[in-house]
């Protein structure tokens, strides 16, 4: 009895220390965002002046860094990316999981292989394709780029669809349902976890992507997303003046994502393990 009490005490101590290490950078971020003293770094950790000025400035001083606009840009892109990619992912994975046609296996392998190329290797070409359509530096081009590759993420949802017994489909088809009806009325209602997972991951992507948007937007500040915009705040020239505002901006976008993530947590696990959890 006594031995296990000591063991538990050690475990609690260990967990406290490790979780402290994990949470520390986040706490530091929040403290910095509330810091009243100027400058990039202070030689102490806890701020001496506490203030909300950084947040207020972030939304009011928009001459150089137009954060509210970037925020709306990102929201706009995220909503449409999320709609288009969710539809594409669900359709593709349903086709590969449930329908049997001649080109199924080859197509699956081809798409899988395509997804293994380093993504931004094709950015130069995509930039010029978008230019040929007259779309560069626009938000629409961002939506297209984020959802254009969605089909390549089919295998997680496919893994989930594979677990739905096919006998249900077959019964419906015997009752005279078309495959279209089976998809909408039977498969989709049973796939809530994977739908939520797909929606949330594709919604979050534009908030955190940094590379694609920097290649596409170049110097068009008005159409930046929050990630690229915030990055501008901590370049060497700006970091001294804007570091605390950067922290405030980071907190502002971390809050909605945190909430979404907590909602999505259980679906996330279903999603990631769907492809492999049936050994």
């Amino acid at each position: 009895m006594k031995k296990s009490t000591i063991l538990n005490a050690i475990t609690y101590l260990f967990l406290s220390i490790t979780s402290f290490i994990w949470v520390l950078p986040i706490v530091w971020l929040i403290m910095q965002s509330l810091r009243g003293e100027p400058g990039a770094f202070t030689s102490y950790v806890i701020p001496k002046i506490w203030t909300f000025d950084n947040y207020i400035k972030l939304f009011t001083e928009t001459k150089l860094f137009n954060f509210p606009r970037w925020f709306l840009n990102t929201l706009f892109v995220a909503v449409f990316t999320c709609i288009i990619s969710t539809i594409i992912v669900l359709l593709t994975s349903y086709a590969f999981s449930r329908l049997r046609f001649k080109m199924r296996k080859p197509l699956m392998n081809v798409i899988l292989v395509l997804g293994m190329f380093p993504g931004f290797m094709s950015m130069v070409a995509i930039y010029h394709i978008l230019k040929a359509f007259g779309l560069t530096q626009s938000l629409i081009s961002l939506i297209l780029v984020y959802s254009g590759g969605a089909a390549m993420g089919y295998y997680i949802a496919k893994g989930f669809f594979d677990t739905i017994p096919r006998s249900i489909d077959e019964a419906a088809i015997i009752d005279g349902a078309t495959k279209n009806q089976v998809f909408w009325k039977i498969t989709l209602p049973m796939s809530k976890p994977i739908i939520v997972y797909t929606i949330l991951t594709s919604f979050i992507a534009p908030w955190v992507d940094f590379i694609f948007v920097s290649v596409i937007m170049k110097d068009n500040y008005q159409n930046y997303t929050v990630a690229l915009g915030l990055y501008q705040m901590i370049t060497r020239e700006n970091i001294t003046a804007y570091f605390t505002q950067f922290c405030a901006g980071a907190v502002v976008i971390a809050i909605p994502i945190t909430i979404l993530f907590i909602i999505m947590q259980k679906y996330y696990v279903t999603g990631v393990t769907a492809g492999g959890a049936k050994g």
Binding site: W22, L29, V208, A254, I257, T258
Partner: peptide, 13 residues
């Protein structure tokens, strides 16, 4: 406590 760190965008952390 651990999972919270996933929610902060990677480029920030």
């Amino acid at each position: 406590a651990f999972v919270l760190t996933i929610a902060v965008p990677q480029f920030v952390s």
